[in-house]
Design a protein around this nucleic acid. Structure first.
Lengths: 143, 143
DNA sequence: ATCAAATCCGATTATTTTAATCGGAATTAA
DNA sequence: TTAATTCCGATTAAAATAATCGGATTTGAT
């Protein structure tokens, strides 16, 4: 499966929104209502992004979240790494200590490693700023 | 999540094995034993690969599977498309008719579309033959 | 000082997806 | 005819994801 998790999807939607309003603080509640995303879930996601210093968070009244750096400096790789436990396409690339049952006959570890590198390169080079260039999908494709 | 499903993983291991033995037919049972993959699961996966003409299948006694074309002509995209229902990183890229609850405020559809294209390009350009070039992981990396 | 609006944190539950299994039917070489 | 096979639909089991719950802590405003 190559589908992104909801965590990632919600994060990208929220980060994209915050990129367009880089100065103001938005609370998780606000964002969940504006963007139509379950509050409990979104708030955890935002907290993780804050922990990995992609967002700034302010506690208490009038608090909330905003970008911690320029969209140009926020890569997809950082976002993924902040939210997902493991980024690897196959487990054996991450858990070096656990022995795969197929390791004796498996010859795909190296090519998988190469593919992994290319994926990392792809999402490492794509930043939030790149996304700001695009018009909305509806304008660009559907109509 | 960016992890490949077991379907994909098993398929890649089996296809890689068959690439190294392109003439002979191997039954699902044989492959499952050689490669240490659950038989029932692998046999379904191989059947799908045969249906999409990546493998040739022979019924009955002495039957089995072998590659239907040169490893050079088998891309990862073909393998993915054969095994997964949807290839898209987010649902809204595939289900044009289903309306996403966020569609009014979502601005990431176009950039997602771009990213999707890059991923498709990446796996569309990688063939089984590319994989045959690599030494085993253990030789290349660990030792 | 108190209160209300926030983030943050751990745990639990619900849902969905993935993985594995089961029980055959159809095919084919020997 | 038989044994070995692919193929097919359905079911079950396991795992991962998504959502929710119940607070604890922080902080600006009154």
């Amino acid at each position: 499966m190559v589908k992104f998790s909801k965590k990632i999807e919600y994060a990208l939607v929220a980060l994209h929104y915050l990129s367009n309003n880089p100065e103001a603080y938005f609370s998780a509640r606000e964002l969940s209502e504006i963007l139509n995303i379950p509050y409990e879930f979104l708030s955890k996601t935002l907290a993780k992004l804050a922990k990995s210093e992609i967002l700034i968070s302010n506690h208490g009244a009038k608090g909330g979240y905003k970008l911690n750096k320029s969209p140009r400096k926020i890569t997809f790789y950082q976002i993924f790494a902040s939210l997902e436990e493991h980024l690897n396409v196959v487990e054996c690339l991450s858990n070096e200590d656990e022995i795969c049952q197929r390791s004796a006959v498996c010859t795909i570890k190296t090519p998988m490693f190469q593919l992994q590198n290319k994926i990392n390169e792809l999402i490492g080079n794509m930043t939030l700023e790149d996304w700001l260039k695009f018009p909305t999908f509806d304008n660009a494709i559907n109509v």
